[in-house]
Amino acid sequence: MSTTSRTLSSTPSTALHSAFSCAWCGRTASAVADDGTQRHHCPSCLQSPHVPDPADGGSGDCRGRMSPIAVAVPRTGDWMVIHRCARCDGLTSSPTRADDNQLVLMRLAVRPLAQPPFPLEAFGDL
């Protein structure tokens, strides 16, 4: 394994300022965003490898692909991305960064309204 294939979560804390390359879209990004906070996912495709916390009963080496499935808004008002592991179905949440791909984020946010399970016209009368 060369150092260029190292992903974010395998980066030791001593090398926080190094770059990582996304294992799925291949983009190279810095491990720390512009505002000094650590990244949890690729800013371009928003995917990340699954590293379960051993304290939560995880084995710590799933390494499955975490795909973004939803956007959540906690009380603070910032957006959070909910990821789901394609291998073990684990769910995690991670905060968005300013340079995350806004098109992918917006697609996630409006996706429920594209195929509603009931007609939304009835809400116009409320």
Partner: peptide
Amino acid sequence: CMSVRPDGEWMIIHRCVSCGEL
């Protein structure tokens, strides 16, 4: 929050207020 499966089914994501589990 609300999530959507590839087949269009809506899924509710719940979060535990005590331990934060999703």
